[in-house]
Design a protein around this nucleic acid. Structure first.
Lengths: 218, 218
DNA sequence: CGTCACTATTTTGTATACAAAACTAAAAGT
DNA sequence: ACTTTTAGTTTTGTATACAAAATAGTGACG
């Protein structure tokens, strides 16, 4: 039995680098607009430029990075307008997920959503911000999966990744965590109503509240 | 002044290969499920494996290609279920575009949409199938642009490209063209109502009708 | 006759090397 | 002093080489 601590025992270097960079960007460790030089990353990850280039190439194709005018790849940097448009698109996609999920509910997906929400509540009550961020992520991912549509789920995940750096700062106070968890509960009620209009409106409301919370943190 | 016939004078080899492959796949020259071997492509394009790998990597990230279980990259092959899921996602995104567009109408976007529709009607009445396909494409793209949200527009375009090979066969009869044009007109009415619910429902109806037409053609 | 093991070939992933492009900076000329 | 040119350095893109993994093929043994 392999060591569980070795997270990705047989992942290629390119994949390791890709996910590592994605996480760092999502966590805001790599600031938007920052330039990523290949050789630096190569030495940092103890690899050559080849796998680094592959990782950068894929992240660029996903919109996490952007290719500069002349030279270099940069962490995607968004103007206020860009951000508002990206969030608008994200809201629409999340609402569509909620809509589809509401039409395809079953005992399994329902229990999965409830389990994910339970973890959110737990993290919120203990005031563990990092844990809540993870649980919140998992909650939304659970809804994506509940659509039963992997294509829909993938776009939604992609947008979540894109907006990661800008959502990272929210949940500044313990009260925010509890408010978010409550908002989740309202959303669940709307989705479980199995009415597509109610479900998508519920998600829009939740996303709106979440967005305002993010704005407040900046 | 440079020669206009040299389409991409300073495009990198990797980009040339990427777009060439994308077009071949969209045109159906490379069949779904077909394996793409790096060395073969390299010799075919007169390049080395490095730019080929970069192109394959990006196309994989975009879902045009898929990585096989064990070995090799393959042209994405969709099962009936996959297709239904992809179309479902596409419908949702198109509906979201219609919804946003309806909230952001102005004289310019209205006239653009009407102009695009006029070309559809013209092509439909003259029974020019190829022209209608182009006009239809332009019509939907116009709606994407009318959202004022390039991110939304890009996802929508992406899905339209993905489903291109499977929508190509529809519009078998001249009556289909006229029916589609009429469906467009209904859709325009719904969008111009400036009621987001009506607009998104209108697009859903249109997409549904269009989808059924595509099914009929197979 | 079938199964297992071992070798050989293909294929992928990574490293390194090199050429071309572009930015930087310094020097020369006006 | 300012522009232009030109050398130098960084950086990107591509090619080739090599190692590791995987599949296929071959033969031996049950």
């Amino acid at each position: 039995m392999a060591n569980d601590l070795a997270q990705t025992p047989k992942a290629s270097a390119a994949q390791r680098i890709e996910t590592a960079l994605r996480e760092e960007i999502a966590a805001g460790e790599l600031a938007p607009g920052q330039r990523l030089d290949e050789i630096g990353l190569a030495t940092r990850f103890g690899a050559s430029r080849t796998p680094v280039r592959e990782a950068l190439s894929r992240l660029t194709a996903q919109g996490v990075l952007v290719q500069g005018e002349r030279r270099g790849v940069f962490v995607a940097e968004y103007t206020r307008q860009d951000l508002s448009q990206i969030f608008e698109a994200m809201h629409e996609i999340e609402a569509a997920c909620a809509r589809i999920a509401s039409q395809r509910l079953n005992l399994l997906t329902k229990s999965e959503i409830e389990a994910a929400q339970a973890k959110c509540v737990e993290a919120a009550q203990s005031g563990d911000r990092a844990a809540y961020l993870r649980a919140n992520e998992a909650f939304h991912t659970t809804i994506y999966r509940a659509t039963g549509n992997p294509y829909m789920a993938e776009i939604a995940s992609e947008f979540r990744h894109r907006t990661g750096p800008f959502r990272a700062k929210k949940f500044s106070t313990p009260e925010d965590l509890l408010a978010s968890a409550q908002s989740h509960q309202d959303l669940i009620d709307d989705i479980f109503s199995e009415d597509s209009t109610t479900a998508s409106k519920g998600m829009r409301d939740h996303m709106e509240a979440s967005f305002l919370m993010a704005l407040k943190a900046n």
